[in-house]
């Protein structure tokens, strides 16, 4: 009977997941979630995959559950190349499970609660982007010129809401090589009637005087309040600091990750080729080769960031570490 209840409560979640089978592949489930919904972020997809796993596997004890979760998380982290924000989601869900296990004496009730609340957790995570847009709205004003970098769903959501609320502003979008994701953002914004100018990454210094404020997304928010984001974010933040322009990070709180990098080389995803040198001529001849070897993420330290607009409020970088401490140590 309980199993029936479980199946019911997770039916909606597992609808687009693979058909139930005995050998559950967490990585492919995660990929499917990510592919199925373009608005889905990596941590959310990870949590969603874990919830499905929880409902499908039938752990009989708390320690078995913890073990299953830990294994799945490990599998996910090693199976996916860019695992920073993913690990934020995994860690958060593991934490959530641990806390709830301790609260309930009755194991069956606990399991049921976990699956149900796992769904709730997801719901909240998905909604957070809209909440952020509302919270970030006062930062935008008529006649603003805004600079954004690459493609961030949270930033796009905020700009679209602002446009819907009849705030008139124009946007510089960096092309953001090597992925070229800035072009995606430009397309979406133009479709919604926001005037956009795409600039080369190297042109940020040229336009910075004309810019009023800078909005950037984040792949992960580190414990210091610094952010891990698409390559090029750091140099934009440095230019902004020099020009005294405010830099706002727009990110969901489930992207807060227990990492404390001091430089991009402390990131788990470091690209060892990025700092190796060569005298071979033909390397640079192939333009695409150069781009392939380029690192994808960099780290922007907290002192370059004015504020973080998150679903739990507008925080200073100190606030991030406070929230993380509250989340983790109790």
């Amino acid at each position: 009977m309980i199993m029936a209840g479980l199946a019911q409560s997770t039916a909606a979640l597992s609808a687009d997941a693979t058909a139930a089978d005995s050998s559950f592949d967490i990585v492919s489930t995660y990929r499917q979630f990510l592919k199925g919904d373009p608005a889905m972020t990596m941590p959310v997809a990870a949590i969603e995959a874990l919830v499905v796993l929880l409902s499908k596997s039938g752990p009989s004890t708390a320690s078995e559950l913890i073990d299953i979760l830990a294994k799945a998380v490990q599998e996910l982290k090693s199976g996916i190349k860019n695992s920073i924000s993913l690990s934020a989601g995994c860690d958060m869900f593991q934490r959530f499970v641990l806390r709830n296990i301790q609260e309930y004496g009755d194991w069956e009730a606990c399991k049921q609660h976990l699956v149900k609340n796992g769904g709730l957790f997801l719901q909240r995570a998905k909604e957070s982007r809209f909440k952020i847009a509302e919270l970030g709205l006062p930062f935008l004003r008529d006649d603003d010129t805004i600079l954004i970098h690459s493609h961030s769903r949270a930033v796009t959501e905020l700009l679209l809401l602002a446009a819907r609320r009849h705030i008139r502003f124009s946007v510089f979008v960096t092309e953001s090589r090597p992925t070229g994701e800035g072009l995606v953002t430009a397309k979406i914004l133009r479709q919604n009637g926001i005037p956009v100018r795409v600039i080369a990454d190297g042109a940020v210094g040229y336009v910075i005087q004309k810019v009023d404020k800078i909005f950037i997304g984040a792949e992960g928010v580190a414990e210091s309040g610094g952010i891990i984001n698409r390559i090029g974010t750091y140099q934009i933040a440095v230019l902004a600091k020099d020009a005294n322009k405010p830099v706002y990070v727009v990110a969901e709180s489930h992207k807060f990750v227990r990492l404390f990098p001091l430089s991009p080389f402390d990131l788990p995803d470091e690209n060892p080729d990025a700092t190796s040198f060569s005298t071979e001529q033909d390397q640079d001849d192939e333009y695409d080769e150069v781009l392939l070897n380029s690192p994808l993420l960099d780290f922007t330290s907290d002192n370059l960031i004015t504020a973080l607009i998150t679903d739990i409020g507008v925080l200073t970088s100190n606030g991030v570490s406070e929230e993380l401490i509250k989340m983790w140590y109790d």
């Binding site: 414990e223 210091s224 309040g225 227990r258 404390f260 001091l262 907290d302 970088s317 100190n318 570490s321 406070e322 401490i325 509250k326 983790w328 140590y329 109790d330």
Partner: peptide, 23 residues
């Protein structure tokens, strides 16, 4: 100070009062 490493994790220097409060 870039970071303070304690037994409860790594923190920025500004988070000392948070640790004191939480613990």
């Amino acid at each position: 100070i870039k970071k303070i490493v304690t037994e409860v994790g790594s923190l920025p220097a500004s988070s000392v009062p948070v640790i004191l409060r939480e613990y």
